[in-house]
Design a protein around this nucleic acid. Sequence first.
DNA 1: TCTGCCATGTAAGTTGTTACATGATTAT
DNA 2: ATAATCATGTAACAACTTACATGGCAGA
Lengths: 187, 187
Amino acid sequence: MALAHAILAALINAPCSGYDLAKRFDGSVGFFWSASHQQIYRELSKLEDQGWISCQTILQAGRPDKKLYSVTDLGEQQLKKWIAQPCEPTPIKDDLLVKIFAARVASKETILAEIEQHQKAHLEKLSTYENLKQHYFRNPQKLSQPEQFQYLTLLNGISYEKHWLAWCDGVIELLKGNGEQEIGFGD
Amino acid sequence: MALAHAILAALINAPCSGYDLAKRFDGSVGFFWSASHQQIYRELSKLEDQGWISCQTILQAGRPDKKLYSVTDLGEQQLKKWIAQPCEPTPIKDDLLVKIFAARVASKETILAEIEQHQKAHLEKLSTYENLKQHYFRNPQKLSQPEQFQYLTLLNGISYEKHWLAWCDGVIELLKGNGEQEIGFGD
DNA sequence: TCTGCCATGTAAGTTGTTACATGATTAT
DNA sequence: ATAATCATGTAACAACTTACATGGCAGA
């Protein structure tokens, strides 16, 4: 059910179309939820049927019509209700860690290359996040309440990428060394 | 396809039954992949049909027969192949962050209670991981290669829980304060 | 001319969740 | 007695992925 609520959360900040939503799920909302455009369109239909969101068709000159969705009172109530009921931390599911766990069937070089790829990807994500922080959250003390909460999700993303980077560093050091040094990171 | 490979990774370390696998996915393998027993049994049938694993029925006195699965040569090849092809970092999907993002529709108390719940859960996980580290990985220098890789997944889990704990601390401080202080964590 | 953006969807297949189902043994 | 553990599954449903499908406009 969380995709529905992630969409509500996004729409409550600013009503928009399915297309726009898909882009947001690739950007800011993507810090904590990912979804393809197919999922989004399907869920939007369902949410409209349930009356949690309403839709207004906007005619545009020279480009396709767009459907502007906004959260209804019922929708906001449901979101509030969902937030109030406790949830569990998300269980981890990570391909890279499966690979590491089974790394003995592969060569050191294969593993090293993969880790370096991931390190690069995490570094890029981190840099994107840091840029957003610089541009939009320069003065954390002066943020409005909604902005403050969004800022917190960004900080989570930054912390998450740093956690991965530190771990990748450690793995690389270990693999590049000859097994003589300690694996001391993570403390 | 990653569930299949997670199962192969688990079986290659030690052949076992579906029931045992389910328990491992609730323990050590659970650091990086989660799956229910229904998924596991379904996937085991499929893997056996494909010839990636083989099965030997063990008759037991006083308890149900068990099926002991082990990875075939073909299975190991497939695992190796999968490890060699690059994968992307797992996109984040986290209920709690959706809640924070939309936190303005809820009360401070609701959010605070939820964060504290999560902090507790992460603390418990961390303590479980630290215990495993103490018991099984006392001398990281002396580990065999397969053990070293398993140790790396454990260290990842530890680092992950610490990342969450630090973030929860920050959020709690912010919510308990009056908005006068900085949100300075995450750096 | 070709790529990318805008904007919306359908269809098929895989994966994951929840509930149901059985039945003996062991510990409280 | 009752609950927990061992051990295996089926069935229905929900969620997610991948591929297909359309079609105009803007810029290189």
